[in-house]
C-alpha cells in the first residue's frame, strides 16, 4: 500500500510537471535554440497563423508571409518568412520566437517569451507604467508553440 501511494504521487508529479509551462525565466537556450516544448502540448498551426496577425504577436507587422497573403499590410523590417522551416530547425524557431535576441544579437525583433530586463515597462499600450504585478510575456508558452507549429509549415523545398 505504501509503495502504491509513493508510485501514484510520483506519477502525479511527473504528469503535472509535463503539462506545466516552462517559466520565461527558466527557458534554456543553446546557441539560440530551445530544445524542448515550452508548454508540453503540441502547437496548433491554425491558431499560430492567427497570432501572426493579431494581438501581441502581430508578426506580419515586420515580416512578409506569402501563406498569409489574404491578410493586408505585411511589413518589411524583418526578412520574409517564406521557407523559414527550410532554414531553421524546430528548436531554433522556438528559440527565435521566444527570444530572438539570443540568436540575433541586438535584434529589432521583440522577445516574445521574456519578462525581465525592460526599460520603462508600460502597462500594455496604455502609456502608463506597469502596475508592478507579475509581468506577462507577450505570448504564452502555448502561443509560442502554436506560432512555431505554423512556422514549421512554411517550407519551399
Amino acid at each position: 500500500m505504501k509503495h502504491l501511494i509513493i508510485g501514484f504521487t510520483a506519477m502525479l508529479t511527473a504528469s503535472t510537471a509535463f503539462a506545466e509551462a516552462v517559466k520565461p525565466t527558466d527557458v534554456v537556450f543553446v546557441d539560440g535554440a530551445v530544445e524542448t516544448s515550452l508548454s508540453g502540448v503540441a502547437g496548433d498551426p491554425a491558431v499560430g497563423a492567427e497570432i501572426m496577425n493579431k494581438g501581441a504577436g502581430n508578426c506580419i507587422a515586420c515580416h512578409q508571409v506569402s501563406a498569409l497573403s489574404h491578410l493586408a499590410f505585411h511589413g518589411e523590417i524583418g526578412p520574409p518568412l517564406d521557407g523559414v522551416a527550410d532554414r531553421w530547425t524546430v528548436p531554433e524557431l522556438r528559440g527565435i520566437v521566444a527570444n530572438a535576441k539570443v540568436m540575433f544579437d541586438g535584434s529589432l525583433m521583440p522577445s516574445f517569451y521574456r519578462t525581465e530586463g525592460f526599460i520603462r515597462l508600460g502597462d500594455a499600450y496604455t502609456g502608463e507604467a506597469h502596475g508592478g504585478g507579475e509581468v506577462q510575456p507577450l505570448l504564452t508558452a502555448q502561443q509560442v508553440e502554436d506560432v512555431v507549429a505554423f512556422l514549421v509549415t512554411l517550407k519551399e523545398q
Binding site: N58, A61, G75, E76, L108, F118, I119, G122, L138
Partner: peptide
C-alpha cells in the same frame, strides 16, 4: 518598453520600410 524599440530602431534603422 516590452517591445524594446528606440526611436532610432524605427526612424533611423528602418525608415523607408513598411511597419504593418
Amino acid at each position: 518598453g516590452q517591445l524594446e524599440l528606440s526611436c532610432a530602431n524605427c526612424h533611423e534603422d528602418s525608415y523607408g520600410m513598411m511597419i504593418r
